[in-house]
């Protein structure tokens, strides 16, 4: 192995190590890659200028949220519903709802019958 490659590798390892240490030190839950992945899942475009600010803000909120880990919740059932109603059923019958005209009224683009979106398939 030539010396240059070795130095390169060492540099990379040191950089990576420093990165990991900083990440642990700052207790970062989300890094740039994760931020982009979440933004994609949430279908939000993320301008590069906003990345760092958002990273800091999200990480500080997430660290604060982790205070919940101080509580022992073994055996506690998650509370998933706040309403006491069970099986609120109604008769299954067709009733006039909103008209097509009304339904299309607020659409950014429509042709009188359908909502229009950019071409999906080539």
């Amino acid at each position: 192995m030539c010396l240059n490659t070795l130095i390169q590798n060492l540099k990379f390892i040191i950089q990576h190590f420093t990165y990991v240490v900083t990440k642990i030190k700052n207790n970062m839950k989300i890094d740039n890659d994760a931020l982009q992945k979440i933004a994609h899942l949430a279908r939000l475009e993320m301008p590069a200028s906003e990345e760092q600010g958002l990273l800091d803000s999200l990480n500080s909120v997430l660290n604060w949220m982790e205070e919940l880990n101080e509580l022992d919740t073994d055996g506690v059932q998650p509370l998933t519903h706040m309403s006491l109603e069970v099986n609120a059923l109604r008769e299954d019958k067709v009733i006039p709802n909103i008209s097509r005209e009304q339904g299309l009224k607020n659409a950014p683009k429509q042709d009188g019958e359908y909502f229009r979106v950019p071409k999906v398939m080539e």
């Binding site: 999200l58 059932q77 998650p78």
Partner: peptide, 28 residues
């Protein structure tokens, strides 16, 4: 920001650690 936070706490790897945990604490 709140959409991003919500997407994160509901993402597969963190769902139990954040979302389910908070639901348990909500019961407490």
């Amino acid at each position: 920001k709140r959409i991003m936070l919500g997407t994160f706490v509901l993402s597969a790897s963190y769902y139990d650690a954040y979302y389910t945990k908070a639901q348990r604490v909500r019961r407490l």
